[in-house]
Computed example of a mutant assay.
Amino acid sequence: MDGLTERQLASVDDVVEAAAAAGIEVWLRGGWAMDFHLGQVTRPHVDVDWYCWRADAERLAATLTGRGWRPDPRMPVEVQLDLFRGDVEVSFAYLSRDDTGRVTVGGGPWTGTPLPAGMLDGPRGEIGSHTAPIISVAAQIEFKEMFPVWMPERPRRPKDADDVARLRASLITSAATGEDPAQLRSPVPRAAWTDEGSERA
């Protein structure tokens, strides 16, 4: 495990600890969510991607800046919260709920778009002694499979196909995930990917 990976794992611990102390909910998404589901680091990651509630974003930013994190000026805070500390970058895409209680995109041009049902209901993930809330495996697969359909100008990356294969294999070999394979392709508008299209992890 290289130094950056170790620092990214330490950042996961820091975010989880800070958020819990402040009573703020967060969930890993992207490549790190997959790794925490699988229980191992499968490949290098450029940054660490999260979800948080839009209503908590300001308080979360204040909590993390108090722990040495600094805002990244490249991303408008209205769209998502991006922070860095040293060579570690973290980003928080926003979540909201609509009038029916469905989880929706909480920031940016696709605000209000429904996200996959049950996305926030999966079990916590872990890598060794590190634990964190993660989005459900079904949602992880859906995002990675459907992104090229929602955004044809951005073809599927080889690592996305590899990730989907790993995630699907994990569902076959582990009943402990609690995921329903019949729901892996629930229809979600292309906008539901929100900013995951720019995810570098």
Rank of each mutant, 00 (worst) to 15 (best):
G3D: 14
L4M: 08
R7W: 04
R7I: 00
R7M: 06
L9E: 02
A10G: 05
A10I: 00
D13V: 06
V15T: 08
V15R: 08
V15P: 09
V16I: 04
E17T: 10
E17F: 06
A18K: 03
A18F: 04
A19I: 01
A22E: 15
W27T: 01
G30A: 13
F36M: 13
F36A: 12
L38V: 06
L38T: 11
V41L: 00
T42V: 08
T42N: 09
P44R: 07
D47Q: 04
V48C: 06
V48S: 10
W50Y: 14
Y51N: 11
W53T: 08
R54N: 12
R54H: 14
A55Y: 05
D56V: 00
A57V: 00
L60P: 04
A61Q: 13
A61C: 07
A62P: 03
L64G: 05
G66I: 03
G68S: 06
W69Y: 15
P71M: 05
P71F: 08
D72P: 04
P76Q: 02
P76S: 04
V77C: 03
E78N: 11
V79I: 07
V79C: 05
V79Y: 11
Q80N: 14
F84M: 10
R85W: 12
R85L: 07
E89M: 10
F92I: 00
A93N: 01
Y94P: 07
S96A: 15
D99C: 08
G101L: 05
R102S: 09
R102W: 09
R102H: 14
G108L: 02
P116D: 03
P116I: 01
G118N: 02
G118M: 02
M119H: 02
G122F: 03
P123G: 05
R124C: 00
E126H: 14
I127V: 12
G128T: 03
G128N: 00
S129M: 12
H130V: 13
T131N: 12
I134N: 13
V137N: 03
V137H: 02
A138E: 09
I141G: 05
I141W: 03
E142R: 15
F143N: 10
F147T: 12
P148E: 07
V149F: 06
R156D: 00
P158L: 04
D162L: 11
V164R: 09
A165R: 11
L167Q: 14
A169D: 15
A169R: 14
A169T: 13
L171Q: 02
A175I: 08
A175T: 10
T177S: 12
G178T: 08
E179C: 07
L184G: 00
L184R: 01
R185A: 10
P187L: 13
P187N: 12
P187I: 11
P187V: 12
P187D: 11
R190T: 10
E196L: 15
E196Q: 15
S198H: 14
S198E: 15
